[in-house]
């Protein structure tokens, strides 16, 4: 494990802890896309099926279990504990996720390392993760404002993806490891986040500073 990989994983962990902490402090899930969070549950479950077939390391196993359990817990919080059903804002979360699911399934059937259920589901999880943030980003675009929670959360997720890129360079040169599917889908995902931050910067930060006297 190299430093970039560890920093990437820690950023990912931090994003989830920020989300959980803020939900439980504010007792509210306003601004969080239920659809994106459900997609993450699907991503983690389909990717980490190898928990049953292969042991990589204690670190790896614990992280996988944490990601699965925390994602299910977040969906539970949004859906039941701090339900958004009575709120108008939920109508903003109307991204057609069927297209993301169908597209990811199609891509995983075409691009995989082996035509076996586990490998197809693994590839499916990569494609789906690369676009899973879209409902959340659309929701932000519609409301036209991002509160600190969603901004910090998305920033940490973006950081996680950004750290994975030097990690792949490092692994390619140091270990001869190159996972073309993970790299390609990872780059798509990083581009989505950078696009978001570009728009966010243009609309929010610059607008805010130009308003100042």
């Amino acid at each position: 494990m190299n430093i970039f990989r560890i920093l990437g994983d820690l950023s990912h962990l931090t994003s989830i802890i920020i989300l959980l902490h803020t939900i439980n402090t504010n007792k509210s899930t306003t601004g969080i896309s239920l659809k994106t969070q459900i997609l993450y549950v699907i991503v983690f479950i389909t990717r980490y099926l190898d928990l049953f077939t292969k042991f990589i390391s204690v670190y790896n196993t614990l992280m996988k279990i944490f990601f699965i359990i925390s994602s299910v817990y977040i969906v539970y919080l949004i859906q039941y504990k701090y339900s958004q059903k009575h709120m108008v804002k939920q109508d903003l979360d109307n991204f057609k996720v069927e297209y993301l699911l169908a597209g990811s399934l199609l891509a995983s059937l075409i691009f995989n390392y082996k035509f076996t259920p586990l490998e197809i589901l693994w590839s499916f999880s990569l494609w789906l993760e690369s676009v899973a943030i879209l409902p959340q980003l659309m929701m932000l675009t519609r409301t036209g404002e991002a509160d600190m929670l969603t901004t910090n959360y998305i920033f940490c997720l973006g950081l996680y993806r950004a750290f994975y890129i030097p990690n792949w360079f490092y692994r390619y040169f140091a270990e001869g490891h190159f996972d073309k599917l993970a790299v390609f889908t990872g780059l798509i995902q990083t581009l989505l986040y950078s696009d978001f931050f570009y728009i966010y910067y243009k609309n929010v930060i610059q607008a805010r500073s130009s308003k100042l006297p």
Partner: peptide, 10 residues
């Protein structure tokens, strides 16, 4: 060596 199928990343 080919470790592409290791899937050892999260």
């Amino acid at each position: 060596k080919n470790t592409a199928n290791a899937h050892d990343e999260l």
